[in-house]
Design a binder for these strands. Structure first.
Length: 561
RNA sequence: GCACCAGUAGCUCAGUGGAUAGAGCAAUGGCCUCCGGAGCCAUGUGCGGAGGUUCGAUUCCUCUCUGGUGCACCA
């Protein structure tokens, strides 16, 4: 149908088909006809006023059998396609495009580095963002046919472990760490900083311990390994709650024997220079501060390990892209590291290394801070949300089976959806009443809509294979819903291109809203079997679309809630 | 000081080089003896400011104001 329109216009206006196709890519406003042709795009090329062009083309096209009417409105040519033909095309296209598999990413590999918590630190509301966004990107790229490697680049190496060891030896105990886990490690870490503010020599001790770790000191490594194991166990609990997994836990420590190679490469390329006792790559030429490679005590730093990780990943997976989902405050760091890779003669670094920043999370307007106690842990948020859902279920649907399972799906879904609904880059001010609100633009609303679809289909006689009488779906609400559903394939591509899960989240919301209007306007369970079947087809398509869209966000759909 | 990011309705946020800039929250009023009321419908003086490019700018450019973040031995 779209092709027919393009034929019509290109013949009538004597224009290149590709050009007409491009112009038709601009989506028409919802109530402005089934296809709108914005002629102002041609104004420059043809040196005529847009309305003139519209009128001319309209006259040449005249009466065509697929069109209901043709209307010139300002600089737009609006095509009103015969509605039943339009509906038929929409349904058939969606059946293939929405629910078929994409081959767009076939043979391509994408590495996503996300979540990557710092060992021995609490997994708080800020870490939740990278985890949720990264997981959604994994789903989106997988849907497009890419092979995706999910990498958890744990912050399990670095000077902070020197600090922790010093603190543990001075103020900690085995019993306390075993009892309170990460919370105790966190306490020790905070204690260290308080003391180090008064006594700078503690920092030197910490560096010394880290240097011991780098040189394979057994005592240091035993303690370190213990801390890592304790932390990892807690993180995995949170991932399980979120329903997420990783393909690889390759923390910074994994690269500790690979940093020497990085240093050698840089030396060989003559990029390394000494500055204030440390080894750096000068990036002045690129308007950036130098990239620190080796500290004055000879130990590695995170940039070194990031470089090692890039080379390792490139060699192991030969990725087309490697994405880093971290806070926007690390933007400069990644710009520096990527530039260094490029300077080593790797042209691929330019396009394939991508930092995906997200905005800062604050708490009720104040900065997150462990020291002042202004912090919320990821697990607490999830559990709180699940609890709230239990309350709502008890009130609205007390007879529901598997309440706990549903509460988990809906509660976690609420948190995920809330986090993915806005653009990544926006700063987030965490507010309990927002997060725990389930009305309006929320995950539970979309899930609720899904449940309604499921409920309708459960309760009626519906033959999914019967031929549809398209002329029965010509009302405004049905067509609006169909148009919405048909956007799905493009939405997924846009989301992938922009690295923005919110595009999918917004889409899911739009579909849910369109469905609700349809639901209120058109009864599905009617006597007339043909009408019932036609509408049920729409319900079925909505249901599948919502499920697939939410799945791309890492959110599940209960059949009842 | 330099750099990066953001500024759209009371609040939280979508959106676009072009038709009348949209949702949700909050508020008020309404909705089917009928498929799930976590729903639907109605009510809106808003693109931080000033220039510029353009037939047309909320969108692109410059300056400016406000907020956030970063700027070597933390990650």
């Amino acid at each position: 149908m779209r092709d027919q329109i393009i034929d019509l216009i290109s013949t009538a206006a004597n224009l290149d088909k590709a050009m007409v196709s491009d112009i038709l890519e601009i989506p028409p406003k919802a109530d402005m006809g089934d296809y709108a042709f914005p002629c102002f795009q041609l104004a420059k090329t043809l040196r005529k006023a847009p309305p003139m062009i519209a009128v001319e083309i309209a006259e040449k096209i005249g009466d065509v059998d697929i069109l209901d009417k043709l209307e010139v409105k300002g600089a737009y040519l609006n095509f009103f396609i015969k509605k039943d033909l339009f509906v038929k095309t929409m349904i058939e296209t969606a059946d293939v495009d929405n629910f078929g598999s994409s081959t767009m990413g076939e043979g391509k590999t994408i590495c996503i580095d996300y979540s990557s918590p710092n060992v021995a630190k609490n997994f708080h509301v800020g870490h939740l963002r990278t985890t949720i966004i990264g997981n959604s990107l994994y789903k989106i790229y997988s849907k497009l046919g890419y092979n995706v490697e999910r990498i958890n680049h744990l912050g399990d190496w670095g000077t902070q472990f020197g600090k922790l060891i010093v603190a543990y030896k001075a103020w900690g105990s085995k019993e306390a760490v075993e009892k309170d886990g990460v919370a105790e490690l966190m306490r020790l870490y905070v204690k260290f900083h308080e003391e180090a503010d008064k006594d700078d020599s503690l920092n030197d001790q910490a560096r010394a311990w880290f240097t011991k770790m780098e040189h394979g000191n057994e005592e240091a490594l035993d303690i370190w390994k213990w801390f890592v194991d304790i932390s990892l166990k807690e993180y995995k609990g949170t991932y399980a709650l979120l329903g997420m997994e990783f393909d690889h836990y390759l923390g910074e420590s994994f690269y500790r024997d690979k940093t020497a190679d990085v240093v050698k490469r840089l030396q060989d390329a003559n990029l390394l220079e000494e500055s204030q006792g440390a080894q750096i790559v000068n990036l002045e030429e690129y308007d950036m501060p130098p990239c620190l490679i080796m500290k004055k005590d000879g130990s590695s730093i995170y940039a070194t390990r990031d470089l090692a990780a890039i080379f390792y990943r490139k060699q192991r997976w030969n990725f087309d892209k490697c994405l880093y989902v971290t806070g926007q405050e690390q933007k400069l760091h990644f710009a520096q590291v990527f530039k260094v890779v490029e300077l080593l003669g790797n042209d691929w670094a330019k396009d394939s290394l991508v930092h995906i920043p997200y905005g800062l999370v604050s708490l009720e307007g104040a900065k997150l801070s462990t020291r002042s106690g202004n912090i919320i842990y990821a697990e607490d948020i999830l559990l709180e949300a699940i609890d709230k859902v239990k309350g709502v279920i008890a009130e609205k649907n007390p007879d529901l089976e598997n309440k706990d399972e549903v509460a988990k799906i809906v509660g976690v879904g609420a948190i995920l959806f809330h986090d993915l609904y806005n653009q990544r880059i926006k700063d987030v001010s965490f507010k309990w009443d927002k997060v725990l609100n389930f009305d309006g633009e929320t995950g539970p609303y979309v899930q609720y809509t899904y449940c309604r679809c499921a409920s309708i289909l459960r309760g009626i006689d519906y033959n999914a294979d019967a031929a549809i009488d398209y002329s029965l779906l010509l009302d405004e609400e049905a067509i609006a819903l169909l148009k919405e559903i048909n956007r799905f394939p493009q939405v997924v591509k846009d989301a992938a291109e922009k690295y923005e899960p919110c595009v999918v989240a917004r889409f899911a919301m739009d579909v849910a809203q369109s469905f609700s209007r349809f639901y209120n306007a058109d009864r599905v369970n009617v006597e007339n079997a043909a009408l019932r079947n036609a509408r049920a087809k729409l319900v079925d398509m909505t249901k599948r679309t919502l499920k697939d869209a939410l799945d791309l966000l890492g959110i599940q759909c209960p059949e009842q809630m």
